[in-house]
Design a protein around this nucleic acid. Structure first.
Lengths: 239, 239
DNA sequence: CGTAGTTTTGAGAGGCGTCAAGGAGCGTGG
DNA sequence: CCACGCTCCTTGACGCCTCTCAAAACTACG
């Protein structure tokens, strides 16, 4: 095993506790290393896959940042999620053998390619892996439900506050700051995800700045009061 | 094997082509029959499970009609889906071993109880079943994405039209009419699912009636023009 | 037949979308 | 190094869609 392939291995990847191999023992990890044999680089602005593409593999984000979005015949567009390192992309393709959304890199990125038939094969062998695959899919379902709650019953300020809190929490789990972040997406993409127009996103950012809750300079955001954001999402004296 | 237990078996269930056993061969079906050994009756208005309940089993709707909904600390409530015969409830519970939503019967119902550890065990044995479980979870993810599209980018009329079309299509797949249906849920529950207030749901129904697209008498709805509904969802001359 | 729950309809208010203009940041090329 | 153009972001004015509040009609059920 040469240096290059060691570098690529799950067993030596610093994301392994966030990613697919979570909880596997060394023996299982070793087998998984043989399944995840390739990497793919995606340039900023280009697609990892598009709607209608044949589904063959899941992808684990190794570096970079993605959005997934569904598009209707009449050109409507909805961002369904933003994916950062360690997160899995492509679960939408399993049901019909074809992808039902686009996955676009928002910055230069690298993904680990996980051929799904081999993942299935290995998860018949290892209970741990099998259960973890189920958990990853279940997590996605639960996440989608909370987005439905956001879209269905929150107002603009609540949506944006919830969005920022979620983003910073995920970044913090990856070793980044709890109070500072760089947005990788445009106001329009945030708006699409949150079901609001880009102007409203911008206005709401400005409102938060006026209220002294955050600082914003373009894509850079500093959260001055996490409590303030939480109170917007979950007003202490509501109904 | 007595008559009672034959009646309960997947292999003799008229829903098997819609439900978990889809595509299994007789041998596999036989094994599955042993996993799905129990049924549960749920009275109208009561819960199959609640948020926080320990997750042990998936449930297949045998008869009746359910809603699932998530609730926030401050009493906000979002219906995340409506489930009819042959559909699977409980996937949300896998990730944390506890359910993250309530499942409420909207009419007297019966479900098949599928202990999840046994489903996992059997799907390590049968590739067909394994793949089908993955498909069911993937289908739920894709469905959720389309609801996000609806909530994020459609107006009230479009949402309700899309909702009616989806409902009648699923009923038709179960042998019911393509043009008539009985709503099992209140205007408020429809509103919660579609991200609108019950008054807006009611007004939008009235608008459709005025336009001659549907007839409504309480929970009974007759679709006079499926084309009309489709044009509302996907306006032929938009943008 | 009374009561509670559900639905319909109206009137008014407000949040967010739409349209529009200007500004800031950044890469490219002269 | 600066000018230029492009994309992205901000802000204002206005209008409309949907929410809110309210009352009445209808249905179901005891």
């Amino acid at each position: 095993m040469d240096v290059q392939s060691i570098k690529v291995a799950c067993s030596s990847c610093n994301l392994r506790e966030l990613c697919l191999p979570m909880g596997l023992n060394p023996d299982e990890m070793d087998k998984l290393d043989h399944v995840i044999s390739s990497r793919r680089r995606i340039k900023r602005g280009t697609a990892l896959f598009n709607t209608g593409d044949k589904f063959t593999s899941l992808f684990a984000v190794r570096s970079g940042f993605f959005k997934t979005c569904v598009t209707t015949a009449d050109g409507r567009d909805q961002v369904t999620g933003f994916q950062m390192t360690g997160e899995i992309i492509g679960l939408d393709g399993i049901v019909s053998d074809h992808h039902s959304c686009d996955a676009i890199a928002l910055e230069d990125a690298e993904v680990c390619v996980m051929p799904f038939d081999q993942v299935e094969e290995l998860s018949r062998e290892f209970t741990t892996l099998q259960h973890h695959v189920h958990k990853i899919m279940s997590r996605e379902i639960v996440r989608d439900h909370s987005v439905m709650l956001l879209l269905g019953s929150m107002r603009a300020e609540e949506r944006l506050a919830a969005f920022l809190l979620n983003l910073v929490q995920r970044l913090h789990a990856r070793g980044f700051s709890q109070s500072e972040l760089i947005l990788r997406m445009t106001r329009e993409e945030i708006g699409s995800y949150l079901g609001m127009k880009l102007e409203t996103v911008s206005r709401t950012f400005s409102k938060f700045v006026e209220d002294g809750i955050i600082e914003v300079k373009q894509r850079y955001v500093r959260i001055k009061s996490t409590e303030g954001l939480k109170q917007i999402v979950n007003p202490p004296a509501s109904r």
